[in-house]
Design a binder for these strands. Sequence first.
DNA 1: ATGAATGCAAAGGTTTTGCACCCCC
DNA 2: GGGGGTGCAAAACCTTTGCATTCAT
Lengths: 188, 188
Amino acid sequence: MNGGASRSPKTAQLYPCGRSSRHSRGTESAAKFEEWRARLRKHIAGQGLKYTEQRWKIASLILSSGGHLDAQELVARVKRKHPGIGAATVYRNIKILCDASILNESLVDSQGRAIYEVFDEAHHDHIVCLDCGGIFEFHDPKLESLQDSAAESIGFEPVRHRHIVYARCKYKAKRSSSLNEGIERTRL
Amino acid sequence: MNGGASRSPKTAQLYPCGRSSRHSRGTESAAKFEEWRARLRKHIAGQGLKYTEQRWKIASLILSSGGHLDAQELVARVKRKHPGIGAATVYRNIKILCDASILNESLVDSQGRAIYEVFDEAHHDHIVCLDCGGIFEFHDPKLESLQDSAAESIGFEPVRHRHIVYARCKYKAKRSSSLNEGIERTRL
DNA sequence: ATGAATGCAAAGGTTTTGCACCCCC
DNA sequence: GGGGGTGCAAAACCTTTGCATTCAT
């Protein structure tokens, strides 16, 4: 599916269209990793849970891949890197990592699969590319406020939202290679 | 889940908050039904498929319920009304009805379930109420164009999108009952 | 030590598929 | 009459759960 896209984090050009699959958060630095680990420990302490090797292995795998992945993909990667860890453990930990605000579910896949990504304080929306399968991010405050007032004007109190644009990149990528730098995460 | 919400199409007040589950398209007239049937026949003819009793029974059940339902809910209703029709037939026909532009999938459920609705030429987005489970519709051209230019400005050609706002209705419904009329489908 | 976490396997639930029979065109 | 369609049951899939065991605190 979106399979091999984020396999080699060192390579820049991963999608057919020439875009990189890595976005601004991509592979985290060692310092960042410790921050995440601290967050996990803190959450775990507050919940009467326990810090296990498997739990952190799963978390770091997500953090180092950095991108957008569904449960199956995560299970597969864990199995690949840590054959000892069972699928049930991965599933159990996905929930815990979400609770700990390390993972975040943002349902974006064009087949309707739940996609997880590293938790990000800053909200963003998604563009799913129909040409290359890549998932990109964007954020537009104008859009957000317009959307909120739309909901409010008809009597709702907006809580959260999911805004996904399915789009094509090919035709543009062909014409303007200058677009290929630094646009994986865009704020307007 | 959102289960009983659209059971009795005659009743106006269905959701806890006092909103109706019926939106502008609701239960179709006999003439409308014939239009849909013609559309089905046309699609079927062009595809080398065949018009069967079951196929139309499934289609009309969707058309007469008019609302938003997931695959399981549809299977259940078909089974209830036409016990002879098997689940596999329903699943097989969901695809065909989508191809025929009679059904339309718009993933909106807060649990990530695929929700189907009667196909509508006029695009609209959704509000999923976290209080009552209801699914409502809205449309704002400003939002649409802003979103399209956002995608275009970063090199994508927008094709379609899914914009779902999860929101609460309770607090407003309490205060302003005048909002409860005619807002199931709102164009701004 | 004690309760949580794990791995395995079995169970669950939903959707798809294989196949013999049926029926629309 | 032939190819698609149907119903049933089996298979496939993904995720959850039960349980004995291991491990963190």
